[in-house]
C-alpha cells in the first residue's frame, strides 16, 4: 500500500460570502498521478493554492507526509519547498535566465553552493529538453518552453509532490504537446502529481485516478476507464460529454485548417 503524500481533510474555503468549496477530502498517494477536472469557476485553482498554503483554507486540514501543515505556527516556507507548483501562466522570473530561474530556489532557499546548484539546474533543464536554452530569458522563449522551464524550476527543489494548474491552457495548440510530453514522462517516472487540466487525452492516458469537481465539491472520482466509460453521476456524464464535444471540435478545426 503506497503512502499518502498529500491529503486534504474536510477542506473548506470561503471568500467573503462565497463558499468556494466545502469539506473536500482528497488523498494523493506516492507515485500517483491524479487529474482534477471540472467546469471553470468550480474552485480547482483555489484548491491547489490551498494545498501548498498560497491561500489559507478556512476549515479542515492539509497533511504532507502525515504532518498537519495547516497547524498554527507551522513553517509555511518550508512546506512550499516540498510542494512544486506549475501555473497556468508560467510565472517565470522575468529578470532571470532559464538557468537562474531553475537555480534560484536552490541557492537562495536551499542554500546550495553555486557550483552544485548549476549542475542540478542543468540536469533539470536537460530533463525538460531545454539544455540549449539555459542562457535565454523568459522573453526569448516560446510559451511551451517557458512552461517547461517552470516545470524544471519546480522539479529542482526535489518536491514530494507536483501541483499543476491548467499548465497548457495558456498555450497555442501546437505547443501543448511538448508540455504534456514532459508531464507524461514525469508520471512514468512515478512522480507524485496532482493535475488540473482540460486535456482529456492526457487524463485518459496518464491519470491513475480522475476527480470530477463541480460547484465546490467532488462529485465523483475513479479510474479513467470508470469515469470516461461508466460515469455513475449524471453531472459527470454531462460534463465529459460537453468537454469531449468541445475538444473534438477543436481537433476537427485543427484538422480543417491544416
Amino acid at each position: 500500500m503506497p503512502e499518502t503524500i498529500l491529503e486534504a481533510r474536510n477542506l473548506t474555503k470561503v471568500y467573503g460570502q462565497n463558499t468556494i468549496f466545502k469539506n473536500i477530502n482528497l488523498k494523493v498517494k506516492e507515485g500517483e498521478a491524479i487529474v482534477v477536472i471540472g467546469p471553470s469557476g468550480t474552485g480547482k485553482s483555489t484548491l491547489l493554492r490551498c494545498m501548498n498554503l498560497l491561500t489559507r483554507a478556512d476549515g479542515g486540514q492539509i497533511l504532507l507526509d502525515g504532518e498537519d501543515i495547516t497547524a498554527k505556527g507551522y513553517n509555511e516556507d518550508k512546506v512550499r519547498q516540498h510542494i512544486g507548483m506549475v501555473f497556468q501562466n508560467f510565472l517565470l522570473f522575468n529578470h532571470l535566465t532559464a538557468l537562474d530561474n531553475v537555480m534560484i530556489g536552490l541557492t537562495r532557499v536551499k542554500k546550495m553552493p553555486r557550483e552544485q546548484a548549476v549542475k542540478k539546474a542543468m540536469e533539470e533543464l536537460r530533463r525538460v529538453g531545454l539544455l540549449d536554452r539555459a542562457d535565454h530569458y523568459p522573453g526569448q522563449l516560446s510559451g511551451g518552453q517557458q512552461q517547461r522551464v517552470a516545470i524544471a524550476r519546480a522539479l529542482a527543489m526535489d518536491p514530494r509532490v507536483m501541483l499543476f494548474d491548467e499548465p497548457t491552457s495558456a498555450l497555442d495548440p501546437e505547443l501543448i504537446g511538448e508540455v504534456l510530453g514532459v508531464m507524461e514522462k514525469l508520471a512514468r517516472d512515478r512522480m507524485t502529481m496532482l493535475v488540473v487540466t482540460h486535456e482529456m487525452g492526457f487524463a485518459r492516458e496518464v491519470a491513475d485516478r480522475i476527480v470530477f469537481m463541480e460547484k465546490g465539491s467532488i462529485v465523483e472520482e475513479g479510474s479513467p476507464d470508470d469515469l470516461f466509460y461508466h460515469p455513475k453521476n449524471d453531472r459527470t456524464r454531462e460534463f465529459l460529454w460537453k468537454i469531449t464535444e468541445l475538444y473534438g471540435k477543436k481537433e476537427k478545426d485543427k484538422g480543417g485548417a491544416a
Binding site: R80, M85, F87, A154
Partner: peptide, 21 residues
C-alpha cells in the same frame, strides 16, 4: 502579484521574494 506567488511557491519568504524577485 504573480511573481510574488511564484517566488513563494519555490519556498521563498516574503522578504526573499521581494529582494530577489
Amino acid at each position: 502579484g504573480g511573481q510574488m506567488t511564484a517566488a513563494r511557491a519555490v519556498g521563498m519568504s516574503r522578504l526573499q521574494a521581494i529582494r530577489y524577485i
